[in-house]
Structure formats: C-alpha cells, structure tokens
Amino acid sequence: MRHLKQITYTIFVTLLIFMALTTPVLAAQEANSSGESLTPIYLAFILALSIFLGFELISKVPATLHTPLMSGSNAISGITLVGALLAAGYDSEMSATILGTLAVTFATINVVGGYMVTDRMLEMFKKKGD
C-alpha cells in the first residue's frame, strides 16, 4: 500500500516537472512572436518545483550512501558544462571564448571526476555473498 502511494507520488511529481520544463519552450516561442519575455517567471517556477523534488528524493537516501550521494550530486552540478560548451563555442570576443574554455575545463573535471569516483565507490558496496 505504502509502495503504491510512493509510485503515485513519484509519477505526480515527475509530471509536474515535465510540465514545468515544457512551458518555457512554448513560452519562448510565444515570446518570439510577441517580443515580450516571460522567461524569468517560468524559470523561477521550475526552480521552486525542482527544490521541492530534490528534498523529497534526497531525504530517502540512507546515511550509508551519503558520501557517494555527495560526489554524485557534485557530478550533476557539473551540468554547467552545457552552458560552458556554448560559451566556448560561440564566435564571439576572445575574452569570452577563453573564459568559456576555462569553464568547460573545470566543469568537465567536475562531471568526469565526479561520476567516475562515485562509480568507484558504489562498486565497493556489495551484499553478503556477492
């Protein structure tokens, strides 16, 4: 019964996130035609929902896995890489490109280092008899 409730809840929250994520795409197209931007509001909407979801997800992680959780979530925060790739790849001023390239470097360290070290740790967690 509790399990069922959990699944329903997860689906519900995922749907919310989905809605929140799709709205700005539509909003951006809307804004293109009207010339006015509503983006900050939608972005803030996403932020609120994601924080809520984050709290729900993380509070379920057992203390045993808190170190891998930290290094793994660290790797996720390397998502800055997505923005950095654009910053380094645009044909713009040299200073912007250099800063973008540096951002790519550090974000890549975060992503690659974070996921690999997390995998290395989680690999060691074995059940009895494995």
Partner: peptide
C-alpha cells in the same frame, strides 16, 4: 536543465 540539476544538488 541547469536550473533543475542545480536545484537538485542545492537541495541535496
């Protein structure tokens, strides 16, 4: 995507 991922990590 940056906002969702960043918020998840922030909450964590």
């Amino acid at each position: 995507l940056l906002i969702v991922a960043g918020a998840l990590v922030g909450a964590s």
